[in-house]
């Protein structure tokens, strides 16, 4: 029974840790890999790193203030392939206002917001097909 505590418990602790390592392992990924905004933009409160996987969609429910210009850039590990980001209206239909898939999956876009609105930013890796393996990605939101 002693062997159980000596060998198995540490193994369980090590493996159970893997579930939470992912997101923290990618911390600051966006700062190092996503495109920089022009110098007059300041960092918003939502820039962050996360993980993407096969059939995985990350959604940010975001409030953007009227009269401000927002610079959005996305990035991810090369093995993820193209990173798609969409801007959706927060309505029942989830109307797509913009998708970089119609723009060659370009990683950055600037938006001028006329009136304060709630939007959803969706990010995914549509070509990534490796199951059970998540990789680092990031989103930068700057504004002026």
């Amino acid at each position: 029974m002693l062997q159980f505590f000596k060998y198995i418990i540490p193994l369980i602790l090590i493996f159970s840790g893997f579930a939470t390592i992912d997101a923290q392992f990618c911390r600051n990924y966006e700062q190092q890999h996503c495109s920089e905004p022009p110098a007059d933009f300041v960092n918003g409160s939502v820039s962050r790193a996360f993980t993407l996987g096969k059939d995985h969609v990350v959604r940010f429910n975001q409030i953007l203030y009227g009269g401000r210009t927002y610079f959005l850039s996305v990035c991810g590990e090369k093995k993820l392939g193209n990173i798609e980001f969409r801007l959706l209206a927060d309505d029942e239909a989830g109307t797509v206002l913009y998708s970089n898939s119609s723009n060659g999956f370009i990683g950055e876009q600037t938006f001028q917001i006329e009136n304060s609105i709630k939007l959803v930013i969706e990010i995914l890796a549509p070509d990534y097909s490796v199951a059970d393996n998540h990789r680092c990605a990031g989103l930068k939101i700057y504004y002026k």
């Binding site: 918003g44 995985h56 959604r59």
Partner: peptide, 16 residues
Amino acid sequence: DEEFIVEFYSIPSPDE
């Protein structure tokens, strides 16, 4: 994971 949607709710910082 087959249909995994991770959803974040963001609130502007006090500064913003």
